[in-house]
């Protein structure tokens, strides 16, 4: 999402939902994700987002998801296994590795580089730190999207509390994340995701993310 006047004017609730759903999609697949796909709530959320943000390409991506998962007869177990295999293959085991999950790999070619430090500082600045249970580097793409969702949540709080400073601060940090972090690498990530995915889900998410960043 390019940070602009239009961005600021767009609904922070929708942005929050969008980033949350994207983060969910980019974490290792679990039963909740599959449940969301099967009970249609995941797709419904994305449809709401598409309607609000009016970004070219997002609609088609969500339609693909609708088509594949709208009336699927697959069992949740089979669906989860298919997603797990696809995700593992792309991000942990492909030959060659097709999709790297970490910002620093795109920017500096290695894990835990300067960009990792920088994004971790932004989390800190926003009052957050990494959960001990999460043992990957902090520039995991899902975490960066989670962070954006969190900033949107704070933005909403600022609005609700009539706290202009808080709202502006939350927006400034979103600007920084989008311009300095997700912007430079998320589209490369998303292209790789779309190109290499074996499942419709990741292909569609790849397209969706390309459209929103």
């Amino acid at each position: 999402m390019i940070f602009s006047d239009q961005y600021v004017q767009s609904s922070p609730e929708i942005r929050e939902m969008m980033y949350t759903r994207v983060a969910q999609a980019l974490n290792y697949p679990d039963q909740d994700l599959v449940a969301g796909l099967l009970d249609y709530s995941f797709i419904q959320n994305l449809l709401a987002i598409v309607e609000e943000i009016e970004r070219p390409g997002t609609k088609e991506a969500v339609q693909d998801l609708q088509q594949e998962y709208g009336n699927t007869t697959k069992s949740p177990e089979d669906l989860l296994l298919a997603l797990e295999k696809d995700y593992t293959w792309m991000c942990f085991a492909s030959k060659p590795r097709q999709v790297y999950l970490f910002e620093s790999v795109y920017r500096e070619g290695k894990l835990l580089q300067e960009s990792t430090f920088e994004i971790a500082r932004l989390y800190y600045e926003a009052g957050l730190q990494m959960d001990e249970g999460f043992d990957m580097p902090p520039d995991h793409i899902a975490t960066e999207f989670e962070f954006l969702a969190y900033l949107c949540f704070r933005e909403i709080e600022g609005i609700n509390e009539d706290d202009e400073e808080k709202k502006m601060y939350a927006q400034t940090l979103q600007h920084q994340v989008l311009e300095e972090h997700l912007g430079p690498f998320a589209s490369r990530f998303a292209r790789a995701l779309e190109h290499n995915a074996g499942t419709s889900f990741y292909k569609a998410m790849g397209r969706f993310i390309q459209a929103i960043v």
């Binding site: 939902m17 959320n45 009052g127 959960d131 899902a142 704070r154 709080e157």
Partner: peptide, 29 residues
């Protein structure tokens, strides 16, 4: 409500994120 479920956290949580946790108050680092 939606995200708490999808993110696998208890619905009671007001902080529905997987990998991040609070360190200090927002805007008050």
């Amino acid at each position: 409500k939606t995200t708490a479920g999808t993110a696998g956290l208890a619905a009671a949580s007001v902080f529905p994120f997987r990998h991040l946790k609070f360190a200090h108050a927002f805007g008050d680092h």
